[in-house]
Simulated scan of single mutants.
Amino acid sequence: MKDQILLKSGVEEELLKELEESGTGIMYMPIMKSPEEWDIIQKYDINVAAAELIFTDLDSEFLSPEFMGRLKKAGIAPWVNAITLNDEIILSGLLDDNNAIKIGFDETWGKLIDMGFEIIQTDWPALLKGYISNKSNEK
């Protein structure tokens, strides 16, 4: 069942080294808070399948086409957490679930999709699925 496991953690070199030394090839997803963490991850021979990018504002280097392109070229699916935890912890530059419902899907989830995110973590999967389906039908 190891092909069904996705390990997720912050970027800590001791954990990355242990995963590399395990030789299991288990899929891994780093939770990255800075682009420099991507450089750390690349030093290890591990099976990175996705990368959760945490950003507090829309000026983050994570959102640049260059950074997204680097991930996608490496076969890494960009993941964003749109869940609203509270007013203090910002995971997706306020392009979150609460604002999707208050402001609009195009202005939040739509922007995340346009930025290149392939996976959106949400508390509202049915709403997001409906939005994506409707958006696809419009094309």
Score class of each variant (00 low, 15 high):
11 V>F: 02
11 V>T: 08
12 E>D: 10
12 E>T: 06
13 E>Y: 01
13 E>T: 14
14 E>I: 11
15 L>D: 02
17 K>A: 14
17 K>W: 02
17 K>H: 08
18 E>P: 00
18 E>T: 09
19 L>P: 01
20 E>P: 04
22 S>W: 09
23 G>K: 07
23 G>T: 08
24 T>H: 02
25 G>N: 08
26 I>V: 15
27 M>G: 04
27 M>I: 00
29 M>P: 00
29 M>D: 02
31 I>A: 11
31 I>K: 04
32 M>L: 13
32 M>T: 05
33 K>R: 14
36 E>K: 12
36 E>T: 02
36 E>N: 08
37 E>N: 00
38 W>E: 08
39 D>E: 13
40 I>C: 01
40 I>Y: 01
40 I>F: 00
43 K>R: 15
44 Y>M: 08
45 D>T: 07
46 I>E: 06
47 N>M: 10
48 V>F: 07
49 A>K: 10
53 L>V: 03
54 I>Q: 10
55 F>K: 02
58 L>N: 09
59 D>Q: 13
60 S>Q: 04
60 S>E: 00
61 E>M: 05
62 F>Q: 04
62 F>G: 02
65 P>G: 01
65 P>T: 05
65 P>I: 07
66 E>H: 08
70 R>M: 13
76 I>W: 09
77 A>C: 07
78 P>M: 05
79 W>K: 01
80 V>I: 15
80 V>G: 04
85 L>W: 13
86 N>V: 12
89 I>A: 13
91 L>G: 00
91 L>V: 10
95 L>D: 11
96 D>Q: 10
96 D>L: 00
97 D>C: 14
98 N>M: 13
100 A>Q: 09
100 A>F: 03
100 A>P: 09
100 A>Y: 10
100 A>H: 11
101 I>S: 11
102 K>V: 15
103 I>C: 00
104 G>M: 03
105 F>Y: 15
105 F>K: 15
109 W>A: 12
109 W>I: 15
110 G>E: 13
110 G>T: 08
